[in-house]
Nucleic acid binder design. Sequence first.
DNA 1: AAAATTCTCCGGAATTTCTCCTATTTTGTT
DNA 2: AACAAAATAGGAGAAATTCCGGAGAATTTT
Lengths: 211, 211
Amino acid sequence: MEDNIKVILADDHQLVRQGIRALLEELGFIESVAEASDGRQVLQLLRNGLKAQVVLLDVEMPGMGGIETLEHLSRDFFGVRAIMLTMLNDRAVIQRAVDKGAKGYIFKNASLAELSDAISKVVAGGTYFASDVALALLQPSSDAGKLLSQLSEREVEILKLIAEGFSSAEIGKKLFISPRTVDTHRNNLIQKLQANGIAGLVRFAVLNKLV
Amino acid sequence: MEDNIKVILADDHQLVRQGIRALLEELGFIESVAEASDGRQVLQLLRNGLKAQVVLLDVEMPGMGGIETLEHLSRDFFGVRAIMLTMLNDRAVIQRAVDKGAKGYIFKNASLAELSDAISKVVAGGTYFASDVALALLQPSSDAGKLLSQLSEREVEILKLIAEGFSSAEIGKKLFISPRTVDTHRNNLIQKLQANGIAGLVRFAVLNKLV
DNA sequence: AAAATTCTCCGGAATTTCTCCTATTTTGTT
DNA sequence: AACAAAATAGGAGAAATTCCGGAGAATTTT
């Protein structure tokens, strides 16, 4: 039909593509006009004149992945909106996807209703992000958490103060220890966190909401 | 009924409370057992033995606001789950709410379906965040954006390098300018951003995703 | 209980970096 | 051309960091 929403489905697993396609067709107002197993194919399809309003993009694909595809899409096919459909809930990935122009981000365990919702919203010019996206963004990243747990209490205490901008001397006064001790802790922190320098420590502290 | 979901509604505007209450009752499986116009009342109700699984909390309320209420809830009434229902989409507010134990965050322009969804998910032990929450978290905060726009290109450039841990000397070398010039820029940055010291600059840069 | 590890603590000296104050040049705007 | 804003820079003292080192106390392992 004419006023159906036309989507391209990009995922490197055929079964996933077929499954999602079947679901979409059930909805009645969405037409899966093409499938692609990587980003390059998506771009090829569009260059060949295929019309579509939405691309459902997996992030992990051999060849050209979803993020890279986004760059090309926003440059060459501005009108085509991309929704990421993936299993990755890594904060950096989400951030990058949105920075590169993704209008939506949902997970592969989403319900059909949610997928439908996302497509509708995005086609209407809006955005859609799964509930879990917010959760991923709000919670400290796990690997940073590991690093944090390797620090002693004293180190965490000092890390906080460093991130608040206090010098060794000032921290020493606060904690009734020698500034040299603070230095040692600071250096140990830099070691443990593989931070390069004090700025790295502050960055870590901020990212982990210690301050 | 017995197995209805029991919610307490906290908002300082009576009309809002009544409206939402009416909507909830329509759903059939949710029972609005009480209303409160601020956090203190919520706690009072619970202390008096009122049973409820969910509290819908506005953030802005006279007296005890939503965030403060969350602290008391998680301390004294652990089983009661809180969902923020507000107009605020400020990143800091969202972050604080979740840090203090909110299980959900939705906006007052949400549909009944969404509200219902949120309550169901949360009662089932999950979480629910409106799509716009993710959006708010992903986009640079507006007031920080204002500050950022007050900086010259050069200043932003130098801010980034500072946040990456380079000293004035190193930055000077990179940019082919005198370290003193970098000093000046740095000091101007501290002034403009009202950051206290270099750590403050790094913090700003990190929070605004310059690095 | 002994050993090993980790945490916490501290100092001196050399080096680097920051802080302040002031001032010139360049750029952009009306 | 006049003016404002941004970018540039020097010098000197104060402050902070780095880099060596060592050592007692607490915790964990053996």
